[in-house]
Amino acid sequence: MTFEIENVSKTFVSNDSDEEVLALKDINLTIETGKFISLVGPSGCGKTTLLRIIEGFVKPTEGTVKDDGEIVTGPSNQRGFIFQNYSLFPWLNVIDNVIFGLNIGGKPEKESKERAMKYLEDVGLKDFAERYPHELSGGMKQRVAIIRSLINDSKSLLMDETFSALDVQTKHKLQKQIHEICKEQNKTIIFVTHDIDEAVFLSDEIIVLSRRPGRIKKIFEIKLEHPRNRDSEEFKDLISEITQEIGELEDE
């Protein structure tokens, strides 16, 4: 068992007025080690907030998150986090970006660079090791951001709409890569997305959150075998079922 989310609620106080907004309400969730979980829901349902609470960027107003039994009080290198918009350090070249976490952890630079080169080779960026982020396309940047998190061997990986800015081909390729790597290393993944196709393709479980305040509306277990066939009837049925579920929420 990796994550135990107990009675988590989150209230935001807006800056201009003292108005309180309830973003999340009574979230209870257990996520087992090695599972690939997707959080989906209508926009503004608080799925990203929940992810940020799990990492420790944001403190819940009520309730606790436990990672392997320990209460989360702040961000940790045990939980990798991949942002929507690349978040590469613009002053570092690709390879120095990739080994950032290893450097912070005091790992010897030579070995780190050798490992980084292997990762870069895996995602087809070996020739770009010395380039700077501004010289890369969006897809390349996101690949660098992904391996920058993977290389730290964190037990879990939290991904916030990581593939949303990419074109379909790059997206499908990266989805396959991330799935293979994570299953190989038995990582726990929590994935926030609004792309139902992506969620069904990758997840063991899909958690649908309701409109604000976000509550767990429904949990879908996806038992299709990997690699999943996007053209199969079951795949299409699941997509329309989940889409309908969210659509009802949007209409409420």
């Binding site: 960027f57 961000p75 290198n77 990798g80 986090f81 942002f83 912070i104």
Partner: peptide
Amino acid sequence: TDPVLIEAAESFGASNSQMLTEVIIPSSL
């Protein structure tokens, strides 16, 4: 300094002094 870069460094376990030397100073340069 882009708050996302600060959060990214936090998620890699950066200490306060590492945050300063590895993120804040280069970013303000």
